[in-house]
Design a protein around this nucleic acid. Structure first.
Lengths: 166, 166
DNA sequence: TTCTGTGCAAAGGATTTGCATAGAC
DNA sequence: GTCTATGCAAATCCTTTGCACAGAA
């Protein structure tokens, strides 16, 4: 679903390794469900929410099944560990890779729900400038441009033409 | 709660008048609860959510009391009428004046929850440029800078100093 | 009189929590 | 063994809906 045209950044360790360090530093434990989730989530770069993840994972009958509450709890840990980034879209929490992935913002197509990534140093500069003017200590930001993507505009044109002909 | 340093824009009619036009154009009716809400909401410029509004309005015992569902339904109408703008913050819907108020974005203090407004033409330019590069038809955007406001940084310093002395 | 709006309670959707048990260290 | 993690169901939070009744036009 994501347009991952930003390329990857080389990192010193894998998400799994990084998560293990995170757990150790807090005296927490590595478990089978957590390993399953990390494997699945980092298999490909994409945006996802809890339900999408649950649909893709083994069903309740399977021994590898992970409960919904565990998914929520584990994703929260991943965010704390800096592995994932989370943001809200239409009332649901959306997750995406953070660790080893460059900072970026999104274009959100309100038609097909696709999230297109883009990177802008100028935006960061502008953000910091605004914050400075307001004596504000920045910790982060959220910038989502909404509208209709190229594909959907095309699709609408086609539909419209058909209708016009009838 | 809002820092309304952006000044007002002169408008041809009051929110109430505008809302009446809106209702008429759709064959809908003006009622007492709607009038009460418009009066209250436009008494002062501020950011608010449904619960804050409900707390400020007359209680259930009063004849002027407005039910929770009505508040939700009416605020939705105000947004449709262009009177209010709505956005989501930490899972709850926050409303602010739109009609007669200039376009702007926010700095959000994660400490005191305050929303500070700022206006940037450069941001709009940057947004449109990014959209154009991606063949994207913009309909709007959401930009929230999070961090800690000046007052809260000061407060923290004071607390910290006290602690250090003990 | 005819519909739209209101209030209340119930329903919904997403996420969190309580608790007994499984399992990591 | 001890203490964290899991699964399930129940609970929460915010918002929407169903329905009978009130009240604009």
């Amino acid at each position: 679903m994501a347009d991952s045209s930003l390329g990857n950044v080389s990192v010193s360790s894998t998400p799994l390794e990084r998560f293990e360090e995170f757990l150790q530093s807090r005296g927490k434990r590595m478990t089978r469900p957590q390993r399953l989730l990390i494997d699945h989530v980092f298999r490909q770069h994409s945006h996802f929410d809890v339900d999408m993840l649950l649909d893709e994972l083994p069903q309740r009958s399977d021994s590898d099944h992970v409960g919904r509450a565990t998914v929520y709890r584990t994703l929260t840990k991943f965010v704390e560990a800096g592995l994932l980034r989370a943001f809200t879209l239409d009332g649901r929490t959306v997750y995406e890779h953070d660790y080893g992935y460059p900072q970026h913002d999104h274009l959100h197509c309100t038609e097909c729900q696709r999230l297109i990534e883009f990177q802008s140093d100028e935006l960061i500069r502008l953000r910091d400038e605004v914050a400075h003017k307001n004596n504000f200590r920045v910790s982060g930001h959220r910038f989502i441009i909404s509208g209709i993507c190229h594909d959907c505009v095309q699709a609408k044109r086609r539909t419209k033409r058909k209708v016009d002909l009838v």
